[in-house]
Amino acid sequence: MNDVTCTWRDLFERHGPALVLFARQWSASFADAEDVVQEAFVKMIRNPSQPDDPAAYLFTAVRHAALDQLRSAARRRGRERAVMQTRPLFESGGDDAADHEAIEAAMSRLSDEQREVVVMKVWGGLTFEAIGRVLDTSPNTVASRYRYALSAMRRTLDPEPDAEVMS
């Protein structure tokens, strides 16, 4: 049996939440996102050649599967209805719950390209090089998107510092 099968639980433990978060950018519901993540894991395990970077492989597989799912017209219609009914993107933050909601809102205002980079970098722990492989683009482009995304989120959350900088 492929060695990946021995470690998929470790990979799931480490990257499962981030992968589901990643899939939720495109999926109609939490359940759909989980389906996509399952598909990615099964695909990796079935892959006869063990990937060099399993995390990057999983993010790539999730991205492809989620986009395929999104292409389905039925799913797209469902997404519009269900997107507001899904679970929160993050675990309850207790005292920081308001912050979490604000950050979720700021994330939702990012472009898809920026959001996926943020998710892979912050919660997936991928390097810019690995993200570049997932997105088939250069690490510099990825780093640039990431910086713009963080700036955009910060501006959304707290526009005043930028106003101070501008003044």
């Binding site: 799931f12 939440p17 981030a18 589901v20």
Partner: peptide, 15 residues
Amino acid sequence: KLAAMRPTRPSADLV
């Protein structure tokens, strides 16, 4: 601050 936030865990059923 972002990294300190924990994405919602997948359901046990997925595992």
